[in-house]
Amino acid sequence: MAQTSSHGGAGEGTRRDFLELVSWATLGVGTLVALWPFVDSLNPSMEVLATASTELDLEPIQEGQRVTIMWRGKPVFVAHRTQQEIEAARQVRLDELRDPEPDEERAPRPEWLIVVGICTHLGCVPLGNRTGEPRGEWGGWFCPCHGSHYDTAGRIRKGPAPRNLEVPPYTFQTDTLVRIG
């Protein structure tokens, strides 16, 4: 705020200019501070944050089986991949992919693929997690809304979606207990 108003000479501020500036600055900062609680109250509350992580027992999930669980209100696909599925995902050359990511990064424990089941195009839930549903041309998932095909690593292969299915943050508490979030 280099500008001073008409009270003083050119480039010279008077006491009144200073007071005016300080008053407006105080009012502005005060208003912003007062607004913050209103804005922040719309962020997730303690209750919402308390359910921000979820645990899943992997023991009962058979090889080749896929299950859907809820995490933060979203579907998460947990796939116990078969050897063929793992090989299919790992043999792909990265330059063939729209969103190049090696399978090793997406699934550090190759038999478990955990992805958020929301198409990165416009937010539909892709098919393929239940037996009998179409899994698309690469044997992963197929989004019926606008025809996006995902491979067995949940990577986008064909269709309008821009990115691979998101991998949520998760840690293995034990070999059969995973904590998502």
Binding site: W36, P37, F38, D40, S41, N43, S45, M46, E47
Partner: peptide
């Protein structure tokens, strides 16, 4: 419960 304890700044509002 919710507004007074869980909502951010809920007590203030």
């Amino acid at each position: 419960g919710y507004i007074m304890r869980d909502v951010n700044w809920g007590w203030l509002l």
